[in-house]
Design a protein around this nucleic acid. Structure first.
Lengths: 148, 148
DNA sequence: CTTGCTGCAAACAGTTTGCAGAACT
DNA sequence: AGTTCTGCAAACTGTTTGCAGCAAG
């Protein structure tokens, strides 16, 4: 599936006359090698390990490209940082987010999806995308932390 | 209900030793007189009409106060601007957002809420809040706009 | 009179952009 | 060779903060 994504990006790049560069390949590798929801800064730090001279701007630009190519999705939580997550073919999931330790768990629920469409239809909207985030304490933090 | 909110804020202010000032009263009036989901900038422009000398910083500070007092809620859509919406006692609703004209329609669905809690429980999370946003075209834009 | 509040401007964080030189094809 | 990319630094946007003077209690 990692190979799939690489070739998906190569196709996109070719179709656009974009070039393949050391930096883009590296950023793609690093991005694909994680399953977390990384902020640009975090990605940048990881990339800088193998390519100390790289600039943040390149990481920003490249991640935007991945998003356009359809293999990453931008997500903006309320912390003011843009994060990128993987896009798996045709799937879309929602997030459980721990307010204490920022752990993110993904889930999917067909019934909720269905209800969303019904609601949209009732208001005459045609839905293109959605986002559902549940904020609270994860199991670990629930135990560790004295209830405020 | 507007009066209720004003006194709610006065109570909060009193309990904290905060002062009542011309600016705060005005910002509260303007905020309460709208039912939209305004960004700080928009609020600031509206307030400036009646008080040309006011500073943005005051609007930022005051809206944060309203949020702490529980009568406004911060919401961050993906456009990087913080918006504030009214908090009605005990209620929480979700949003249908038109990607073309930015119209926001509120809705609520008890079944979705229930499913959210079940999902959270299944993952051992205790939910404190959530956000659900459906993005698409509103009825007006669906007709106006040639499908891309 | 005391302390909190305001307006201003400067500071900040995250992100974007202009440009000269480097690197693909 | 001809363009696209990169790295750097400067620019930008939305928001926060420090401070001197103003105003509420």
């Amino acid at each position: 599936m990692i190979l799939q994504k690489k070739s998906a990006f190569n196709q996109f790049a070719a179709a656009r006359g974009l070039r393949s560069t050391r930096q883009r390949d590296l950023i793609l590798d690093v991005f694909l090698s994680t399953h977390e929801h990384l902020s640009v800064e975090e990605l940048y730090l990881k990339v800088k390990v193998s390519a100390p001279g790289i600039g943040q701007a390149t990481v920003y630009r490249t991640l935007k490209l991945f998003a356009e190519a359809g293999l990453a999705r931008e997500m903006t939580l309320s912390d003011g940082q843009t994060r990128y997550e993987h896009v798996m073919a045709g799937e879309h999931h929602d997030h459980l987010i721990c307010s204490r330790c920022a752990t993110i768990v993904e889930f999917e629920d067909a019934t909720i999806e269905r209800l969303q469409n019904e609601i949209a239809a009732r208001h005459g909207f045609s839905i293109r995308s959605h986002r559902l985030e549940l904020y609270g304490l994860c199991p670990a933090c629930k135990e560790t932390v004295p209830v405020p």
